Computed example of a mutant assay.
Amino acid sequence: MMNELEDALAEASSLSWTQRVRAGRALASFADIPEAAEALMGLLLDVEDTAVTRQTAEALAMVGTVAAVRLIAVAVAEADDNRADWLLTGVHDAMVELGGVPDVAAACRKLARDPEGAVRRGAADISAWADHTGC
């Protein structure tokens, strides 16, 4: 397991967008580990390629833990409108693929009480996206 984490952390800083996508997918299940969370935030807000943003958001939404959804919420709060659209697309893709992601909704309800305002705002946006898409 540690080799998988270490390999994914190394790929997260790759110049190749496909390796960064692979890193985002691999790191999603480690969202509660600080080193992975830091790398995932970089991937969610990837300045080089929006595919990295979208697919990392999708992977985190599919994991659906509070730690995973919290990272998406923080990214939403920090993102410009274009990046936020790609984050939305990733969350939406996960919801459609799984026929809805109840874990995301539950995580958003918990994050609505987070002491950090940006997290609360991002979680509210994610909840609104889920409501709007009917997932």
Score class of each variant (00 low, 15 high):
Met2Asn: 10
Met2Leu: 12
Asn3Asp: 12
Glu4Cys: 07
Leu5Tyr: 09
Glu6Ser: 06
Glu6Asn: 11
Ala10Gly: 01
Glu11Gln: 13
Ala12Gly: 13
Ser14Asp: 04
Ser14Thr: 00
Trp17Ile: 10
Arg20Ile: 04
Arg20Gly: 01
Val21Asn: 02
Arg22Leu: 08
Gly24His: 00
Arg25Asn: 03
Ala28Arg: 08
Ala28Lys: 07
Ala28Pro: 13
Ala28Thr: 09
Pro34Asn: 09
Glu35Thr: 11
Glu35Asn: 04
Glu35Leu: 09
Glu38Val: 08
Leu40Val: 04
Leu44Cys: 09
Leu45Gln: 11
Leu45Gly: 15
Leu45Ala: 15
Leu45Met: 15
Asp46Val: 05
Val47Ile: 14
Glu48Gly: 12
Glu48Met: 10
Thr50Glu: 09
Val52Arg: 14
Arg54Trp: 03
Gln55Lys: 10
Ala57Trp: 08
Ala57Met: 04
Ala59Cys: 03
Val66Phe: 00
Ala73His: 12
Ala73Gln: 13
Ala75Leu: 12
Glu78Thr: 11
Ala79Gln: 08
Asp80Arg: 07
Asp81Met: 08
Asn82Val: 14
Asn82Ile: 12
Arg83Tyr: 10
Arg83Gly: 06
Leu87Ala: 07
Thr89Asn: 11
Gly90Phe: 03
Val91Arg: 04
Val91Ile: 08
His92Phe: 10
Gly99Asp: 04
Ala105Pro: 02
Ala105Asp: 09
Ala106Gln: 07
Cys108Gln: 00
Ala112Ile: 02
Arg113Thr: 15
Asp114Gln: 01
Asp114Thr: 02
Glu116Ser: 10
Gly117Arg: 14
Val119Glu: 05
Arg120Pro: 02
Arg121Phe: 13
Ala123Tyr: 01
Ile126Cys: 00
Ser127Glu: 01
Ser127Lys: 03
Asp131Ser: 15
His132Gly: 12
Thr133Trp: 15
